[in-house]
Each structure stands twice: as C-alpha cells, then as structure tokens.
Design a protein around this nucleic acid. Structure first.
Lengths: 343, 343
DNA sequence: TTAAAAAATGTAAGCGCTTACATTCAGCTC
DNA sequence: GAGCTGAATGTAAGCGCTTACATTTTTTAA
C-alpha cells in the first residue's frame, strides 16, 4: 500500500498533490482556476485526480472559501403544485449556475417556518428564498444579522423595500373580480386560505373588495370564509357559504384547489355551475382545466417565477444589486365556471 | 469595541467562549452534549450564545465532525405530484431528526442524474435517496467509493440486493390487469413512459404481460406506446393506439397523468369511457378522482413511502443495517373508467 | 481524614481546503 | 551578462469547529 489516502479511504487534496508530485496549492488551483497552472502540470494533476477518484471535501471547502454554493428555500409545502412547479424551475436554474438547493417546508406555519429558516442558515445556505412577505421581524433580523441575502417570491408589493419577485396578488384578483362583477354578480363570497400570516391570500381578498368598491358595491359586503388548503376543505367551505349567505351567486376562491372543492360541493348539492352559481380560482394549475366545468382563474407564471427567483438570488449573491424587484404579469383565464348572474 | 467577533461580524465559538469565560471545548459541549457540562456554566454559555447571536459555522462543523447532517434526493421532477408528495413526507421526517434535505432533479435523464448525484455528494450529502434501480454501474460504484449510503425508493424487487423501500410495480400492475381482463378485455394496449432507464415503467408493462399470460392470453400480443410524461403526450398516445390497434378495448397507462390524457383524447374523439373503451392509471393522485369519469388506478402510498425512506436512511446512517428492505402494499381502486369489454 | 472515583473543564491537535505571500526560473532588454 | 519581468509553483497560515487526552475540582467511600 502506498502512503496515499492515509489508509482510511477517501483521498484528499494532499494525496493528489503527493501522487502528482506537486503542492496542494497547485492542485487546488488546477481545480479552481486552471488557467493559472502550466499545461503539463495540469494534465498530470488531472490524471491524479482521476486515478485516485478524488472529490473535494465539502466542509473543508466551505470553511476555507467561506461559502457553500448552496441556496435554501422554505416553502409552505411541495404538495401544492404551485410551489412544486416554481421550486422545480428554481432548482433547475440554480443547477445551471452550479448551486445546490436546500429545501424545507413550513406547512403554512409561521413558527415552523422560523425554525426552518434557522436550520437552513445553520446548514450554510448562502442565500434564501421565502414565500410572501408575512413573517415575524425576528426572522428578518436574524437573516440580516447572519448576512444571508433573502429574496421574497410569490408576492410583489412595490411599497415593500425587500427584494422580491412575484406578482401583484391584489391587482390580479381585482381584475378577476371585475370580470365577475361584469357578469352581473353582486352577491359575491370568497373562500380564502387563512390570512393571518399569508399576505398573498389577504391581498387577494382585498382585491375583491377593491373591485367591488370601484363598481360602486359596498366592499364591506363580502362573505369571507377562511379554511386550510385542500379539496375537502373547499367543499366544506362552499356548504358554509351557502348556509350563511344563500343569496350568493358567485364564489371566488383564493386558489384552484379550494375552487375545485367548491365545484364538487356544488355538484353534490345539485347546483349547476355556472347557471346557478359561478366559481373562480387562482393559480391556473392543471386541475383548473380538468375540473368540470373548467375553472375561470388567474394564470400565474409559476415556472418563470422560479427561474427568475434563481437568477435574482444569484445576482444578489454576486453583489450585483440591480433588478432588486421584479413584477411578473398574470393573466385572467375565462373558462366555463364563470357565467352571468342568475336573476 | 470589545475584542469579540474580530470586528468582522459573525461571532465564532471562540467569541462565545471568551464572553462566557470558558474554553471553546466547553462551549462546544454545551451545544452538542449539554449533559456533560455543569449547570451554571451551561447557563452562562447559553446566555453568551444568545447575547452574541452565535450560530455555528456549517463548514467548520462539517469538517470537524465529518458529517453534514444533510441528506440528498435526486428525483425525476417535482412537478410530478407523486414525487412531490413523497419528497414532502421525506423532508418532514428528515426534519424531525434534525437532518436537512438537498434536492436535485434529473428530468428522467440518466446522464443528468449522474451529474446531480455527483454534485450532491460533493455538497456533502451524508446519504442519498434515488428513484428506482435503473442506472449505470458507474454511479453505484462512485457512491460506493465515496461511501455514501444509498437508498432506492419507488421500486421494490426482492431479488435486488440494494436497500430499497417501495412496492412491487410488476405485481401491482398485474393485479390491476387481472381486473381488466376479468371485465372481458382481450385487446389491451398500454401507454407507458419511456422504459429505457425506468424500471418502474418497465415492470408495470411486464405486469400486464404476466396477467395476460396467466389468463391464457398471449403476452406478446400487447400494444405498447412509449411517450414522455404529460397530459398532452397521453392524448397523442391514445390517438396513436386507436390508429395502430383500433380493436383495443382497454388502455392501461403506467401513470395517472397519461391516463387523464387518454381520457381527454377519448372524449375528443367522441368515444365513451368506459362504454366504448376502458382506461386505467397508476399512482392514484388527486386528478384520478377528479377526472371524468374517475379513474380506476393503483393506489400507491407515496407519503408513507417518503416517510419510511427517511426513517430507513437515518437507520442506515446510524449504522443500524436492519430493515434493509421494505415492501409497501398497494391497492387497486376501481372507479368508473373501467367497465366491461364491449362486444 | 484521605485516597480513589467521578464530574467538570481546559489544552491543543487536527479536519481538508484556499490563498496571501515567497520563491524559482525562463525569457527579455540593454 | 546583469537586471528585470512575469509565469509557474511552493510554503504555510489560517478557516471555526470537535474531541482525545490532560488537568482540576467535587463527590464518595473507607
């Protein structure tokens, strides 16, 4: 046995240096800035790397170079197709730039989110992606103190100073509400996700109020039911609406999944959509077109958002602070679930 | 300014030690095995940690402790709900054990998968989760050489020696096929994902053949169309089947998404499901129940698989090599998309 | 009271890499 | 050929933490 690899298995930089008869500095340079090394030497070193099956030790590299090339994301859940898509694109783009993705999910729970953020930062994330603006100041302070660049996604509010890539939830929902109102609906109800620590949901609800106000309707006069994410919860919420406010002719849901639940409940209750009642969603995920009838909704470019988020975060990490804020456009998709108000 | 934190910002263990008037070893012990430190000292140190806002440096910790507490997963794509769910559960369970998840996706591309595996290992993954058995020996060798414990998920083959948690794709599909054949179908076609480097798809197709053989039908006589993942591709494949083999009365798809595409194509072509043709899926994701008509499919416990995968990997990392193989049960879900063969 | 055992804490040697700085040496210029 | 320049390479000092081992303090037992 040679004196390489210290007999314990995994070869180190020193083993490679030894094998190639150069110093560790040269090997390191070969790997990180090959142009600074003579051609012959480089070839010899590369051969050594291959022969030995060398791979750099991550911890050592991170320690010495003070960065991990790792980016973290904390999302509510991957089971929501919206985030799965965005995250997929985010990861792909990150990969293209040699960065790796660390993920955790908060289950829409602020406290858990805080833990996750801390854990990921402790894992050496160079930067972090967070969903929406809403969270305790403690997290933001922590991030600032640890000097971890942070990007917000899925929300965009021109008045917020933080770097963000997203869309104007409020304006988008207001647009959609305008369409609904345009169909003659006056008794609108809204099925929302819990708004307590979710600015996206909150803004969407406000968007409906904005549109109502603009149309001369009383913005206070809006039935809102809050319920967790899920098809079943959407069903239950629909029933609740019909009990509390039977005169309702249009139900606007803050996401497609709740809307699909509403659609299902309507069918079970023998109500025809859109003849008896109209239903709208938000996100435009696959089930929106699959639903019976297909769902009128707001199309959100989730993939693009993920990709842009990655690009922006990379920019920020590089120190290029340009383009700190990016607003993406959404689009109303009118489908059969919206019809004129019955009279 | 005190002589803490070296003026450069982030506090280190030494700063904490200094502030609390103990050695770095004591601080380290406070953090990692508090029971080995006297109560007063511990309190003092913890206060110092809080006062200084100390957080351990990941690289240093990884380097010194020779582990990152990070586990990696390479999945085909998060956009497939099946993996999104499993991964979500995987991550949750990992989190419960203080581990963090690194993810990458291969887009069902073997070469890309290899790169991703290397990248993740280079990022210090202590262990890795891979989907299915199929991949080049090089990857397995690399993993072995780097001593990275590996777990296979979504497949389970008692004859394979590698640790795995999954289900018997072949048997499950054979079960479903038996039901189809039981409805009198003889001209069965299959819409499959590309089988080249996907043992799950391959096994499912073989499962159909098994059932045919068992029922006295010729297993060779099975129309198989391979197509990438997607609703649209499922539609196209359906049309292809009806062109190539118009006598087909049942189409078995290797996943729900392709099946939904088939369903849609059938509707567009004016064929009634299940009167004119039966369609089945595999996975039992949400859209299976949402589809019109609801899809007969194989229910796979994706979440449970994710959770078990995490548990097993953690066991393996600990060195407990027990329970090296885990087979999960699947279940046939008969819904309206399957009916008797027309005569 | 005292020695031995146990508990608490300290000392310091790495972990494997990057990089500032030092050295060597070939190729120039004059 | 002396002096200079710049490319190629080497030397060695950390990076911030863990942990084996040494030392000190406290507890226990006889």
């Amino acid at each position: 046995m040679t004196n390489n690899t210290k007999d314990n298995g995994v070869p180190t930089l020193a083993d490679v240096a030894n094998y190639a008869n150069v110093s560790t500095a040269t090997v390191s340079r070969c790997l990180n800035s090959p142009e600074r090394v003579g051609e012959n030497t480089r070839k010899r070193v590369m051969k050594a790397v291959r022969d030995l099956g060398y791979a750099p030790n991550f911890g050592a590299q991170a320690l010495a170079a003070r960065q991990t090339n790792t980016v973290a994301a904390v999302i509510p859940t991957m089971e929501n197709a919206v985030f799965a898509r965005g995250l997929q694109a985010f990861q792909e783009e990150l990969g293209r730039h040699g960065k790796t993705l660390l993920v955790a999910s908060s289950a829409y729970n602020a406290e858990l989110e805080e833990q996750q953020v801390r854990a990921l930062v402790a894992r050496g994330a160079d930067g972090i992606l967070l969903i929406g603006y809403d969270r305790t100041p403690e997290i933001y302070e922590f991030l600032a103190k640890q000097k971890v660049p942070t990007l917000i996604a899925w929300s965009f509010n021109p008045e917020e100073p933080r770097p963000a890539v997203g869309f104007n939830n409020r304006a988008a929902m207001a647009d959609l509400a305008r369409q609904v109102i345009g169909q003659g609906h006056e008794n609108i109800a809204c099925i929302s996700a819990p708004t307590a620590s979710n600015d996206r949901a909150r803004e969407r609800v406000e968007g409906i109020r904005d549109a109502k106000a603009k149309a001369g309707q009383d913005p206070k006069n809006l039935t809102v039911i809050e319920t967790p994410y899920g098809i079943e919860t959407g069903e239950t919420a629909f029933r609740q609406v019909m009990t509390n406010a039977p005169q309702t002719t249009a139900i606007m849901c803050v996401n497609d999944v709740l809307a699909v639940g509403a659609l299902r409940a309507a069918r079970e209750m023998g109500m025809k959509v859109p003849n008896d009642i109209s239903v709208t969603g938000f996100d435009d995920i696959e089930i929106a077109t699959l639903a019976e009838p297909p769902l009128t909704t707001v199309h959100v470019p989730h993939r693009e958002m993920g990709r842009c988020a990655a690009d922006m975060l990379i920019q920020i990490l590089k120190g290029d602070l340009i383009g700190h804020n990016l607003e993406l456009a959404t689009e109303i998709r009118i489908r059969q679930s919206l019809g004129p108000a019955p009279h």
